[in-house]
Design a protein around this nucleic acid. Structure first.
Length: 420
RNA sequence: CGGGGCGUGGUGUAACGGCUAACAUGCUUGUUUUGGGAACAAGUGACUCCGGGUUCGAAUCCCGGCGCCCCGACCA
């Protein structure tokens, strides 16, 4: 992408109505636009990040046996009445609307009920199980108080997978696999060092549910991180679980955190309510055992910004950065213009996501924007570097600077700089 | 839902109840510049959130609404 054509613009100052780091930086760097409290439009840069995250999650869900689908955002009130969750007193974050003929509808806050109802059409026999449908979808939640930029919005993107199993063992087996896959995802998006598998309250069918909590300075949850192993306990159950559930250690450190994922044993809560059952090998009807596996995509983007930015701007991990390399053409000589464009074309042809700053602006402004946007590798092309037939590479994360011959610049040679 | 703060060009701020609402930044044009948000000049851009009221006179005071932020409560 040529930066001169990108309609996103950077800003020196953050709007005064944003205090959270994620919102300030995402707006200043031009990734999102605030529409209203808790509602953010994704601009081209922001959408690129969201798509990168989505692709990582999709690949892992598919490996797990998930099958991607897309449920509707408009929901039938009937299925919710069957589970008892239509009432605003039970689920207080509903957005509801009406058809012209006054029929009431709900706007999707979550999808257990409609999906369970849907699956009645496709699950009749033990041969139809297990099934693992999932989707990426916009959720609408009428939060009393939206806050913290994209971390707690009224409209946000979420991946939700639901497991439909024959037995508790089968369900538990999948649950364990999903747990591991979630950990891998958070490592892949660059939050591995800060994200803990966290034991939380489990409801009627399990002692615990599991959350994935990323430790940040301004989190909205409180967790107790085990200092001996790698898990944590949510404050909500610290009264009944005051030691590490994994290793038994009593050394737990209190931290604030953001919940980025949540996996939950639903048991037969919804299959009972909506009468989803199957015939087992002996011809007897059995309730389907369910589980839910959520992951906040847009929240993940915000969390990465909270955790990995510095005073100059965002620092994207390679896997989810909007672009892999940011070529900065310094000076307005024809030679620089031509060579930087050539490098841009070559890398693009190799399938590398490159942003070329071809704007008619001074070096200082380009560097400042580059740091703010946070692309992992800055590639400076100027008369100075061209005299050596090279470009100057700067790694955003480490500030390490190195000259590379211009014909040796590839995705691989850049990546090597970071791992060293 | 309780408490607190706040709405002024795109953005950040200023203006005692009193001149044509000011400054910075952004944007446009020109000249000079060109490796860390350059300099100069000329431009551009605001019914001061909305509706009422008080007053000779309201961005400023009063009432009502809408919106935004923060703290708390809430968050299968």
């Amino acid at each position: 992408m040529l930066q001169s054509l990108l309609f996103t613009k950077t800003r020196k100052e953050a709007p005064k109505d944003e205090v959270s780091k994620n919102a300030q930086l995402l707006i200043r760097a031009g990734f999102v636009h605030k529409e209203m409290a808790g509602v953010y439009t994704l601009l081209p840069l922001g959408l690129r990040v969201v798509e990168k995250i989505t692709n990582i999650v999709r690949a892992e869900m598919n490996k797990l046996g998930g099958q991607e689908m897309q449920l509707t955002a408009l929901q039938d009130k009937g299925v919710w009445e069957k589970s008892g969750r239509w009432d605003d007193k039970v689920l207080d974050i509903w957005f509801k609307t009406k058809l012209k003929n006054d029929t009431e509808l709900g706007l999707a806050a979550t999808h257990e009920e409609p999906l369970t109802a849907l699956m009645k059409n496709y699950i009749h026999s033990y041969r139809d199980l297990p099934r693992y449908p999932y989707q990426f979808q916009t959720k609408f939640r009428n939060e009393i108080r939206a806050k913290s930029g994209v971390l707690r919005g009224r409209e946000f993107l979420m991946k939700d997978l639901y497991s439909f199993s024959r037995t508790e063992d089968e369900r538990a087996d999948f649950y364990e696999k999903a747990k591991n896959v979630y950990s891998k995802i958070f490592t892949d998006v660059g939050l591995g060092d800060f994200t803990y598998l966290t034991y939380a309250s489990g409801g009627t069918f399990s002692k615990y549910s599991h959350e994935f909590q990323t430790v940040t300075q301004s989190g909205e949850d409180t967790i107790f991180v085990c200092e001996k192993c790698t898990v944590a306990v949510n404050k909500e159950i610290i009264g009944e679980q005051s030691t590490c559930p994994q290793c038994g250690s009593k050394d737990l450190a209190e931290k604030t955190s953001i919940e980025v994922g949540n996996i939950f044993n639903l048991g037969t809560r919804f299959s009972d309510a909506l009468e989803l059952s199957f015939l087992d090998e002996t011809g007897k009807p059995q309730p389907v055992i369910m589980g839910s596996y959520g992951l906040g995509i847009s929240r993940l983007m915000g969390t990465v910004v909270e955790v990995l930015s510095d005073e100059k701007g965002i620092v994207w991990p390679e896997n989810i950065a909007p672009f892999f390399a940011h070529i900065i053409a310094v000076g307005d000589s024809e030679n620089v213009k031509q060579k930087s464009r050539q490098l841009y074309d070559t890398l693009s042809l190799q399938g590398v996501d490159v942003l070329l700053d071809d704007r008619d602006a001074r070096a200082g402004e380009k560097f400042a924007d580059c740091d703010l946007i946070g692309i992992p590798y800055r590639v400076v092309v100027s008369e100075k570097t061209l005299a050596l037939n090279s470009a100057e590479i700067k790694v955003r994360k480490t500030d390490e600077i190195k000259m590379l011959p211009i014909d040796k610049i590839t995705k691989e040679s850049l990546s090597l700089l970071q791992t060293r």
